[in-house]
Nucleic acid binder design. Sequence first.
DNA 1: ATATATTTTTAGATAAGACTAAAAAAATAT
DNA 2: ATATTTTTTTAGTCTTATCTAAAAATATAT
Lengths: 217, 217
Amino acid sequence: MLSFSEENYLKTIYHIEQFQPDGVSTNAIAKKIQTKASSVTDMLKKLAAKQLIIYEKYQGVQLTKEGKKIALKVIRRHRLWEYFLVKKLNYRWDEVHEIAEQLEHIKSKTLIDNLEEFLRFPKFDPHGDPIPDKNGKMILTKTISLLELKVGQKGVLDSLKDSSDAFLKYLNKKNLALRDRIKVIDIEPYDNSVHIETKTHQLLISKKVAENLNIKV
Amino acid sequence: MLSFSEENYLKTIYHIEQFQPDGVSTNAIAKKIQTKASSVTDMLKKLAAKQLIIYEKYQGVQLTKEGKKIALKVIRRHRLWEYFLVKKLNYRWDEVHEIAEQLEHIKSKTLIDNLEEFLRFPKFDPHGDPIPDKNGKMILTKTISLLELKVGQKGVLDSLKDSSDAFLKYLNKKNLALRDRIKVIDIEPYDNSVHIETKTHQLLISKKVAENLNIKV
DNA sequence: ATATATTTTTAGATAAGACTAAAAAAATAT
DNA sequence: ATATTTTTTTAGTCTTATCTAAAAATATAT
């Protein structure tokens, strides 16, 4: 049985791997997990000894099949609990991360499957991210970042590249929500900002924000 | 903020204090928490330094006001989560303890109050134990053990002195549930066993079992 | 009252996971 | 190609919560 900390590392490596498929660096993990590189190295050795990652000094790491399986279990738990918190306990999408970070490590053979059934098998969490099923399978939606849309093109806000509370609060303030239909009115070539229109209002979106919005066209 | 382990000690001391109001012994704690007396001593020093217990070498401990407050918070969380597991996730009363032991240590300012509201402010957990409210107040029901009833006397099974999974499974097997009306048919003076009758069947209850059944007369 | 048994504490060790500081390796720049 | 910077690892330390073994205090029994 893995520790809280080991599970966290596996989950984190999985997430970074989505963007860095051929080797996740020690520093990248340290940054995401808010710890020191030396602590990461220690843990990588431990996970490698358990055959959950492939680790060669200075080379970055990759999850093994087993490591990936465990990472997906943790992600499944995290996303189901987030769904529970929002749908049943009336939390906002920007309030659930910290609590789900703890709940995702509760150990039980049956708990998460029972929770999933209670929630009636949701397929996406409150941030639009897909929830892996019992076998680790999830619905992968093809999206592009808002930055890639042309003037006049339309799409739907599907999910986020950055789900930090800070970004979620920004979207709250700007009245942008998942499933909103978006049309690009204009693109400013100088700073890559995007002028968009939703059903209810118009908005100016900076490059930084635009690249964190995943659009289904 | 207290650790998982510190919270567990406070909760355990609170429970033992119900039966040993003037000083909880190191060994009693060690037994309940499944650890060694020396480990308990270490922790007692720590809790005393934090002013959560009154501890004098060799004298046993007592919770301070603050220690009791925290213990009741942990018990509140435990019982609300047990209620959730049974009422929402369809667990049986003998399956929830281990999971609630973990859930009770989730840290959040708002989680447990939101859960309580979602569950519509239950006053008793699945084992008949009262759930402390936000302020630590709970409904204390006057009960006596089945052993104290006279022949011919009636009462209702209200709660249990022992809520171990083993005892709960025993009650399942014997078809005894909370709220069952019970009448004492006969008492065997030789071994203090009790012959009882419920709405549906008659049963012979050993002394050991009888003293763990709390009856509201 | 004294011997014996039990309980509790102390001392020292261990494991997990983090840290700092310094060394080693790899990447980048001139 | 060499110097510089950045990244990663190593070595050693710290904290938390355990443990064992031995010592000290308390309780029990004769």
